[in-house]
Amino acid sequence: MTIIQDILIIILAGYMTMDEDGIVLLTYFPVIVGFVTGLIMGDMHTAMVVAGTFQLMMLGVAALGGASVPNYGLATIVGAFVAIRTGSGIKTAIAVGIPVGLLAIQLEVLRRIIANFVAHKMEKLNEAGKWRQMLNWGYAGPVLCFLETALPTALIVFAGPTAVTMVLKVVPKWITDGLTVAGGLLPVVGIAMLLHYMPLKKFLPFLIAGFVLAAFLKLPIIGIALLGLGAAYWYFENEVAKSNPQTTAVTPNSAEDDYDE
C-alpha cells in the first residue's frame, strides 16, 4: 500500500511541473496539489493544513517574465508526505518543505538552460528539413519538466521520511523554529517583486488604501478586492471617456515603460 502511495506521490510531483508549465489544470498552487496529496495519502486534514500554510507563503509570488520562484507546490507535496507518513506535525512539513522548495529554484534554472540546447537542436533539425525528428525533440521539454520535480521527490521518498525526521531531530530547535519564522517573512519577497512589476508610482494611493483597509479595518481580502475592482472600473471609464473625444488614434507608447523590468 505504501509503495503505491510512494509512486503516486513521485508521479504527482513530476506531473505538477508539466501541468504548471503546460495546460494549467492542476497548477503548482499548494492548495490544489495539497488536495491531491491528501487524496493519495488518505489524510485530507493534514495535507490541507500544510497546503494552506504554503499557499499563504506563496501569495504574491508570481513567476513573471520567466523569473524563477521557490516551488511551494513541491514544498507542499514533500512536506505533507513526510508529515503524514511519520505522523509528525506541521513544523516538520515546513522544515522539510522550505529547503526543498528553494532547491527547486536551481533545478528550474538548470532545466531551462538544458532547454536552450533542445531549442538549438530543434532549429538545426528544421534547417536540415528533418521535421519528424524536430517534433520528437519537442517532447524533451515535458520530460525535463517531469524530472525536475520527480527526481528530488524520489530522493526523499526513497531515503525514507523517517530518515528525514531523524535528521530534523538532530537539527537544533532554533533552526526549525527559524524556518517557521522565515515562512512568515518570505511572502515579502514575492510582494516586493510584484510591486516592482506594477506601475506603483502612479497608483501608490491604492497600495496605502489596501493596506489600511486590511491592517486597521480588518476587512477580508475579497472585500478589498471588490473595492479595488470598483476603483479600476471608475478609472477605466474615465480614461476611455477622456481619450474618445479626440478620435485620432493616438498610439500609446508611454504606458509600456511601466512594465519593463
Binding site: I191, P199, F203, G210, F211, A225, G228, Y235, A255
Partner: peptide, 20 residues
C-alpha cells in the same frame, strides 16, 4: 491594464498587512 493594476495594487496593499 492600468485599471487592472489598480485592483492588483490594492490587493497587494492588503497582502502586506495580512500575509507578511
Amino acid at each position: 491594464t492600468e485599471a487592472a493594476s489598480i485592483m492588483g495594487i490594492t490587493v497587494i496593499g492588503a497582502l502586506v498587512a495580512t500575509v507578511v
